[in-house]
């Protein structure tokens, strides 16, 4: 017989509920900011990776290999414990006066994820027929502006399914930010568990929220790509 008595009221009302809700808010902030920045940075790195200038290409290649082949947790610790030692005092003071934990987590998540996004987008770009670039250059667009108006918009449409994967990874990976004291959802669930010993309830609640966020992202991005972005059917 199961002796454990479930007490869902602990996580559905009162102080502990408020803790969890504040954790959800932080997780959403962390994820949304990191996804947006990682997407922009990923686009930039992808274009640099395909540049005709060798140093630019090599820099992007090095960046990719470095950040996708080291653990995210190490990168979070690096930015949080390591980076301030080499930054000027003025910058440090400013960082400490803001939310340094949150900022470190955003930087780590953004850079880590941008490396994967850049590779996904690059494979999308490589699948666009080279005649598209020729047509665009023939109209008088420079290489960069051809990328901006013709190639990347098509590449992103092709890359939507792997991009959704990366966005979901950001949401799930954001839980690692608890290790440097960012009071996000996993951190708060752990707090509730510590105070109440209701670990089952606390982490079930966290699980349900993560699952809901992932499903919402998947549905939203799919809907956006199908309705707002115009179709990209093969001829």
């Amino acid at each position: 017989m199961l002796k454990y008595k479930f007490d869902w009221a602990v996580v559905l009302s009162g102080t502990y509920y408020d803790w969890l809700v504040s954790g959800v808010k932080v997780t959403i902030q962390l994820s949304v900011v990191s996804i947006a920045l990682a997407f922009l940075l990923g686009l930039t790195i992808a274009v640099m990776r395909m540049s005709k200038l060798r140093p630019v290409r090599w820099f992007a290649h090095g960046y990719l290999e470095f950040f996708r082949n080291t653990p995210l947790l190490v990168q979070i610790f690096f930015w949080y414990f390591g980076s301030y030692k080499i930054l000027p005092t003025a910058v440090n003071d400013w960082l400490v006066s803001t939310n340094f934990e949150f900022a470190s987590a955003v930087i780590a998540l953004t850079i880590y994820t941008s490396a994967f996004i850049a590779e996904d987008i690059r494979s999308g770009v490589l699948s666009i027929p080279k005649e598209q670039m020729e047509a665009s250059r023939s109209s008088g667009f420079s290489y960069i502006r051809s990328m901006q108006f013709i190639i990347l918009p098509q590449a992103v449409r092709i890359t939507i399914p792997p991009l959704i994967n990366q966005f979901l990874n950001v949401v799930k990976n954001s839980s690692l930010a608890m290790t440097i004291g960012v009071a996000e959802l996993t951190y708060q669930a752990r707090q509730v568990e510590s105070y109440t010993f209701k670990g089952f309830e606390a982490f079930t609640a966290a699980t349900v929220v993560y699952l809901a966020m992932s499903i919402i992202i998947t549905i939203a991005v799919t809907w956006y790509s199908k309705t707002i972005l115009s179709p990209l059917k093969a001829r």
């Binding site: 047509a135 008088g140 098509q154």
Partner: peptide
Amino acid sequence: INKLRAEVGFVFQQFNLYPHLT
């Protein structure tokens, strides 16, 4: 070269319209 190309229209065998635009 971009200035030159703006003055010269080019029509391709395979049309090469931009598929994501109307």
